[in-house]
Design a protein around this nucleic acid. Sequence first.
DNA 1: TAGATTGTTAATCGATTAACAATC
DNA 2: TAGATTGTTAATCGATTAACAATC
Lengths: 212, 212
Amino acid sequence: MEKKRNISMAVIRRLPKYHRYLGDLIRNEVDRISSKELGERIGFTASQIRQDLNCFGDFGQQGYGYNVKDLYAQISNILGLSRDYKIVIIGAGNIGQALANYSNFESFGFDIDAIFDVNPKLIGIKIRDVEIRDIDTLDSYIKENDVSIAILCVPGRAAQSVCDTLAENGIKAIWNFAPVDLNVPDGIVIENVHLIDSLLTITCLLNEKTEK
Amino acid sequence: MEKKRNISMAVIRRLPKYHRYLGDLIRNEVDRISSKELGERIGFTASQIRQDLNCFGDFGQQGYGYNVKDLYAQISNILGLSRDYKIVIIGAGNIGQALANYSNFESFGFDIDAIFDVNPKLIGIKIRDVEIRDIDTLDSYIKENDVSIAILCVPGRAAQSVCDTLAENGIKAIWNFAPVDLNVPDGIVIENVHLIDSLLTITCLLNEKTEK
DNA sequence: TAGATTGTTAATCGATTAACAATC
DNA sequence: TAGATTGTTAATCGATTAACAATC
């Protein structure tokens, strides 16, 4: 990456969307695109697109626009898609199993290396060739296999304690599906998927409307 | 609600978090709390908390702070938790089934009224007493039962067409788990849970770090 | 009453949009 | 070359934080 100031989270959260739309353009055999037209498709202003992309480098060409394939490759790279990640799931309940089976991850080159649970009835069962392991072996597994990302799908009451184990053993990031906020040392990336919060946003907006 | 200007999405997205922390305080038998202390727990500034709450009314008392139970009740109400919602799931794959089984929703009074899928092998099967129905009956079901919220868990390629059916039959909100952006007429609430985007945010941040 | 803490206004900060010179 | 469109600076907008008078 040429540039590299401090990129704001607002920008980072838009990158996957660029990636998605550029993938669509490639599939539709579009070779080049201007910030104006991309903006119309995605629903961003042309200005914002140019600002965003310029955080990372000069990917465009005056008078021409952006080469779709090149830009896609650049953004893939910025998103970290050119390397591999060891990923584990902790908690083989509804959500954990659904994510273990979720086929969309594969197309991005992600796959799950191990699954852990406390429930003896689940331990040993395989989900798509990945065996569910005893959560007591989590600490050594993380350390020995240099796991980058843990997908946390345990009940809220268990989340912080599992999180501590992960942090102590050198996890780099936690994708948290438990409905709690986690305390971690600085430097560990936390990304929350708070499903209840998301649903409550809907009911809040619906409720706001009926009152007007 | 006493006041009621135009509440920004930034504020609305913080409300579920207030709700969650106030619930914790009630469970810990805390009767009252100042914006300062609540801020320290949640990780917001006291100022922000007072600003946020004042969008909806004067819930505090000078020199005292906020009554925890009262505030919790007010926020529950703002979040629309004092009424019921008819909710359906469309798509009984991994994610759809996981959400149908997700017990956390119950504690908020949410339950699923119906599940739909295209797959004949799934139609008729029950998930927690809710039968999976033929997606061809979706339109009439939505209309006749005045469904408020549809949880969309179909593959990306099917999402827009199901979305159109929902919109035509008077859905109020769509909780979208498909990895696409939906086009809907104004007035329909869309809340996206773009799992891939969320995971790519993690890899982007991890990647950023290794480069530094 | 004095101390505490709110509600609210003003100041700051950051993110988005507009404008335009540079240049392909 | 002329037209198009970028990269980038400046202007605007919105959200967060600070400050403080009001008041319980």
